[in-house]
Design a protein around this nucleic acid. Structure first.
Lengths: 204, 204
DNA sequence: TAGATTGTTAATCGATTAACAATC
DNA sequence: TAGATTGTTAATCGATTAACAATC
């Protein structure tokens, strides 16, 4: 499935939650299209791809649509995650409620700093990097969130690959090298900021 | 300029820094293409767009290319930024060194929580939201980083718009409504996590 | 019923790749 | 020089839009 479609499904999902909160039970392709300036026919093609059947007068059933999108993105499956790097950003993510929005459960936290190791975070103890391999195995952890400094990222990725991790949510600006069978989703904060810089020049 | 090109320019930039660190002085379109699986002819078209002239044997001069990309993204212009929302994420960003990578200088921090107001962060005092309008004006701040809870986001955006902000780096999952003349760059953490969920299903 | 909205096919658009003469 | 690599044009590909008969 193309990346562009995935991103649209995610946007539909958050908009549908808003509509539902307003008491609506159906949404038309035109309503969804207005959301981010695409044509209603593109939305209908996305709907066909999801396998949902709409009704000529009212549109698509919101509950059905939410369920199908959540299923397409596999958000209902509980996936076990480890966080590597308990710096300011790692700490912010660990304490946030974001994990559940992706169907993830944070199960372990690792850091290198002996001053931090042992800290309790909502019932999860920050562990030493030396425990990484064993804990990922014993806790059946399949995904990792990487919030270590860029210089350390690749080295940690190699450890994660050996331990059998299947997916990485990467916050370091470094382009990671991973063996096949491992997927990386980059959350490029620096690129976001650079894009804002570019856009600022355009608007003014 | 299409978003896809912007993202490529940003990727070229970080790769060029690596090449330069290795002591190289030129890069060919083929090298840059290998980076993320596009064709060398696409890279050459990007180069033409930047206005750089390559040499048939050696490729493009790295220093020239870096300068042109930085110029295209306006990274050399110093832009003054405010951070709104000093929660865990806002705090992590405030303490990070990311701002300079986009050519931004963090000049003010705002939060609603009276327990936090007054805190000193690298010489910047956290201010009350009531000061937002005045400080943005008096400090000539043109951009804002939004790390407030989703429910408060739109309300803050309206204040920022009134104060004359030109660009917003948005970390809230909410789709923001802004008047024309203001640009928003969304840093969708939730969508990143959902995309990872989808990809995990695909690889296994 | 009337007409709003779907599902579907063809047309359009833009971005990417292929190809190749020019050239350092 | 030989050949690697550019700059450029045409071909291809994929994604988006337009159009419209079907239908609730």
């Amino acid at each position: 499935m193309p990346k562009a479609i995935i991103l649209r499904l995610e946007s539909y999902l958050s908009y549908l939650a808003e509509l539902k909160a307003l008491g609506k039970t159906t949404a038309t392709s035109q309503e969804l299209a207005n959301l981010f300036g695409i044509s209603s026919s593109r939305v209908r093609q996305d709907m066909v791809g999801l396998g949902i059947v709409g009704r000529p007068h009212s549109g698509y059933n919101i509950l059905d649509l939410q369920a199908l999108i959540r299923d397409a993105l596999d958000l209902n499956a509980r996936k076990r995650m480890a966080l590597i790097g308990f710096g300011n950003l790692g700490r912010a993510l660990a304490l946030s409620d974001i994990w559940n929005h992706g169907g993830f459960d944070l199960k372990a936290i690792f850091d290198q700093d002996t001053k931090i190791i042992g800290t309790d975070v909502n019932g999860i103890k920050v562990r030493s990097m030396t425990e990484l391999f064993g804990v990922i195995k014993s806790e059946s952890i399949e995904a990792a969130c990487l919030t270590v400094p860029g210089a350390a990222a690749q080295q940690v990725v190699d450890m994660l690959a050996t331990a059998g991790i299947k997916g990485i949510w990467n916050f370091s600006p470094t382009e990671l090298n991973v063996p096949s069978g491992i997927t990386v989703e980059n959350q490029r904060l620096e690129q976001g900021l650079m894009t804002l810089s570019f856009k600022l020049k355009e608007v003014s």
